Simulated assay, not measured.
Amino acid sequence: MSTTLRLSTVILPVRRWHEGGRSQWQRAEELGLHAAYTYDHLAWRAFRDGPWFGAVPTLTAAACATSRLRLGTLVTSPNFRHPVTLAKELISLDDISGGRVTLGIGAGGSGFDATTLLRGDEQPWTPRERADRFGEFVPLLDELLREPAGLTREGEFYAAHEARNLPGCAQRPRLPFAVAATGPRGLRVAARYGQAWVTTGDPKLYESGSAAQSLDAIRGQVAKLGKACAEGGRDADGLDKILLTGFTPEFNPELAGGSGRPFDSVDAFVDFAGRHAELGFTEIVIHAPVPADGPEFAAAVADERLFEEIATQAPAQLA
């Protein structure tokens, strides 16, 4: 596990590759960021009516345009993925990137991913149904990536019949999983299969909570992760802990008071990141700026200059 706090970014897949997309991924590498992730959605929130490109093709292009930067999803879910086809894509991406891929994976939620593929008489999965599928999805994907010569499994939701994924991942025994979870079932999946754990904090606090309440809630999540690891016979210190920023009260522009927003300045961000590093986080992920003519997105750094200052100056102050 990392002993220093790493700084990474999320690049929303909203730019055409030859109109700013390529250069944004290349700039993330030039700035020395640890990793650059993208969202694996069919469409997302206010960006639904604008450009939105596929995660795996975007990451493949990014792999060819960079040489050091780690790449990944935050996060992929069973909402529209199947373990067999996803494994094939991940093995290909890991090969093309030279072993630089991390799979962020979670149970998924409501919204476009959950409804786009439904027939007229079908209903979106409930939270319990999503958890059921996630609990089967991750173990099967784990096996598919570890046993490339052929795998047959029959589950309640997913099946694989002589699924072959030769030559396997470039990273051995497979590429790392960063499991997004806060509930007990998801945390058990993270404890068993994750090389990292991901949280965005407590979403219920975004609208009316405080920075102190958010920190307490995240502290509680870290404690629950530790309990899940202990129950599984694993040391929680063996998992990297990733905070995807933008969804805690500090980022809500409607909330007044406090010490300001983390993206007011480099110092404000360092203060925010430092408080979370004290909870054991090893990686902080910030959203790169989105096009000015697109939807407003409070989770992202609004100013390109400030984004670059945070990327280049904050890691030294947090070391």
Score class of each variant (00 low, 15 high):
residue 21 G to C: 10
residue 22 R to S: 11
residue 23 S to F: 00
residue 25 W to A: 01
residue 26 Q to A: 07
residue 30 E to W: 00
residue 32 G to M: 10
residue 35 A to C: 11
residue 36 A to N: 05
residue 36 A to R: 09
residue 37 Y to Q: 08
residue 37 Y to W: 15
residue 38 T to Q: 08
residue 38 T to G: 07
residue 38 T to H: 05
residue 39 Y to I: 14
residue 40 D to Y: 07
residue 40 D to R: 10
residue 41 H to F: 04
residue 43 A to H: 11
residue 44 W to Q: 14
residue 44 W to G: 05
residue 45 R to V: 05
residue 45 R to T: 05
residue 46 A to V: 09
residue 47 F to L: 09
residue 49 D to C: 04
residue 51 P to F: 03
residue 51 P to M: 01
residue 53 F to P: 10
residue 53 F to K: 06
residue 53 F to A: 00
residue 55 A to F: 00
residue 56 V to I: 14
residue 56 V to W: 02
residue 58 T to M: 08
residue 59 L to A: 01
residue 60 T to M: 06
residue 62 A to C: 04
residue 62 A to W: 01
residue 64 C to I: 03
residue 64 C to G: 12
residue 65 A to E: 11
residue 67 S to R: 13
residue 67 S to F: 01
residue 68 R to Q: 09
residue 68 R to N: 05
residue 68 R to M: 02
residue 69 L to E: 02
residue 73 T to V: 05
residue 75 V to H: 01
residue 75 V to E: 02
residue 76 T to C: 06
residue 77 S to Q: 03
residue 78 P to I: 03
residue 79 N to P: 08
residue 85 T to K: 07
residue 85 T to Q: 13
residue 87 A to N: 11
residue 88 K to A: 14
residue 89 E to V: 06
residue 90 L to D: 07
residue 91 I to S: 02
residue 92 S to M: 13
residue 93 L to R: 07
residue 94 D to F: 08
residue 97 S to C: 10
residue 100 R to C: 00
residue 102 T to F: 02
residue 103 L to A: 04
residue 103 L to G: 02
residue 104 G to M: 09
residue 105 I to H: 01
residue 105 I to P: 10
residue 107 A to M: 12
residue 108 G to K: 12
residue 115 T to L: 09
residue 116 T to S: 15
residue 116 T to I: 15
residue 116 T to Y: 14
residue 118 L to C: 09
residue 118 L to T: 13
residue 118 L to P: 14
residue 119 R to L: 14
residue 120 G to F: 09
residue 121 D to A: 14
residue 123 Q to A: 13
residue 124 P to R: 12
residue 125 W to P: 07
residue 125 W to K: 11
residue 126 T to D: 03
residue 126 T to P: 05
residue 128 R to S: 11
residue 128 R to G: 12
residue 129 E to S: 04
residue 129 E to K: 15
residue 129 E to Q: 15
residue 130 R to C: 05
residue 131 A to V: 12
residue 133 R to V: 04
residue 133 R to Y: 03
residue 137 F to Y: 08
residue 137 F to H: 06
residue 139 P to T: 11
residue 140 L to H: 01
residue 142 D to C: 04
residue 148 P to L: 05
residue 149 A to C: 08
residue 149 A to I: 10
residue 150 G to T: 09
residue 152 T to I: 07
residue 154 E to G: 07
residue 155 G to S: 10
residue 156 E to D: 13
residue 157 F to G: 03
residue 158 Y to H: 06
residue 160 A to Y: 05
residue 160 A to C: 09
residue 160 A to T: 13
residue 165 N to M: 11
